[in-house]
Design a protein around this nucleic acid. Structure first.
Lengths: 317, 317
DNA sequence: TTGAAAGCGCTAACAG
DNA sequence: CTGTTAGCGCTTTCAA
């Protein structure tokens, strides 16, 4: 319609080359009146680039992951990338096939998995750049992790400073980072000659926290303070504790990890460790984009915890 | 490698045709040892199908939208579709270009927008099936909406039954559904010969609810009960009200809409209207898949509100 | 039961 | 400055 070859159209549309004013004018008119839009699929097939990043997470319903997605999306948008979201719904067996199906349709992957080490290995065969949202040792891939050990270490120190001696941990044992969190808490307690009382839940959710509460508080050896695997568990735990007649925080101090927005709105306001979800997402996406732009990066970033003291932890009476 | 033509491979991989046992065996071996995976891009180019659904929402951080995505993802997974997520970050000007960029890479779209009517019109030109997450009048497109008018009507009736007479509404005026919610509340109040005191926030967030609180409670004509545009605003409102020295729910009843999970964990537990986010996502995705499977559908589903009475609304003293 | 060949819509060399 | 041409990796008639 513009009386030029397809090659000219291609170059014009992509801004690869400039043309004489009359030609450009005709091109512009034709494109406009035809409502022409280049087919990104055909484009991708030849360039090998999709301008899409896959992000695989365990549960979008968890505000921590929501924040990660938010952060990743923000920098993706800035660089004109789109997010292909895979929510494995906490279903680990499905995870691998989902990611494998995802890989060929994207330029790179951000993966937050429970089985990171294992996944990290086979993702390398996918032949796509991957950023893991979890520190992985011994592999040359970029990661954005979090110092889980330090997080609980700090939490315990905080509680020790408040005079607590009997400290329990309510974990989620299906998570690999659970061990790191236990280790950090144990380390801090050991320095004070104390031990950690460990309990587990079956899911990283408020519901699970509720269900575990009575087991922790009404069992033998009632703790003065409880550190939860994450804020959601803490939220559920606190709710149930109140139902059971405990006064919070006087009867038992509670702390979580992640700093989800809702910790501020419950009573007592939840003391927590900021997990920097958005920052994780942003950094991970930035790394991926760097790699895709030919700036190789195998750096293993470890985000540092920050204690957010609110009202759910008080001096032991 | 299997000594057959590409056509044979194609048919075998897609299960379009069966072959003689020896050939199939060779095919199987070759595919396995090569680790061959068909290129979905090339496939999509010829079939015109991407097995991807685009979902455009305003803010993944809002638990209501999170639920929608969750629901949509669940049925997408069941039907072997993937989600391409677009989070407009409440930025309406960006929304259109984002959706236009999204359209050619997906088989269909689920759109939750502030400017639904307008969007609905130009999405038709995208030449892709669209499901709007909002009732749109006068257009033959499938929608999954929510009876916003009835929602606030029910909430007001509930409050009237509790003896409240001075009822305020704390809205979010940038949302088109805000008007419907106001109308429903007004209708119920008018039947009792009462009027609605309307206030507005600048965002559908807890933060905005906090900021608006003093304006509502410390201004002239202090309400006995406040209905908020959504649960997040209600959460923020309640927190600030307590900071201001009000006892909840005795001094003021508060209700929200959406039934986000966290309404259960605050004190008093938030009375709300269930917005059925997951169900919306599921239905929308199901409709889209139906359309894509050649079962046309222009039905306009309207989900019915359900009142969830908890502790934040009590009899007016 | 299998294969040859024609494209899908585009980009990237290379020519002119 | 503009066009020709050769594919990208696949599916799909159609013929053998």
């Amino acid at each position: 319609m513009a009386g030029v070859s397809v090659a000219t159209v291609s170059k014009y549309v992509n801004g690869t080359q400039r043309f004489s004013p009359p030609v450009e004018a005709k091109l512009k008119d034709a494109i406009e009146s035809l409502g022409y839009r280049s087919n990104p699929l055909a484009r991708s097939m030849i360039t090998g680039r999709t301008r899409t990043i896959g992000i695989a997470i365990l549960d979008i319903t968890n505000p921590h992951f929501t924040k990660v997605v938010k952060g990743a999306n923000r920098v993706a948008l800035q660089h004109d990338y789109t997010l292909l979201l895979v929510d494995a719904e906490e279903n680990l067996s499905r995870e691998r096939s989902l990611i494998e199906a995802l890989a060929p349709r994207v330029d790179g992957l951000i993966v937050s998995s429970r089985a990171s080490e294992e996944i990290a290995k086979w993702t390398l065969k996918l032949d796509k750049p991957v950023v893991m949202l979890r520190t992985v040792r011994g592999l040359d891939i970029p990661t954005v992790g979090f110092d889980n050990r330090l997080a609980t270490y700090m939490l315990v120190r905080h509680l020790l400073n408040l005079g607590h001696r009997k400290i329990a941990y309510l974990g989620f044992d299906a998570a690999t980072i659970n061990d790191e969190r236990i280790a950090g808490a144990r380390e801090a307690l050991a320095e004070a000659g104390l031990t950690l009382d460990v309990h587990e839940t079956h899911a990283p959710t408020a519901q699970a926290g509720e269900e575990a509460c009575s087991r922790v508080l009404l069992g033998p050896n009632r703790p003065q303070a409880v550190i939860c695997y994450n804020d959601l568990i803490a939220l559920g735990f606190m709710k149930e504790a109140k139902s059971l007649g405990f006064r919070l925080p006087q009867d038992v101090s509670v702390a979580g990890i992640d700093n989800v927005p809702y910790g501020e709105y419950v009573e007592p306001r939840l003391t927590t460790i900021d997990g920097q979800g958005e920052r994780m997402g942003e950094l991970a996406m930035q790394k991926l984009i760097d790699v895709l732009a030919g700036r190789p990066d195998v750096e293993q970033v470890v985000l540092e915890p920050r204690l957010v003291v609110r009202d759910s932890t008080v001096a032991c009476r």
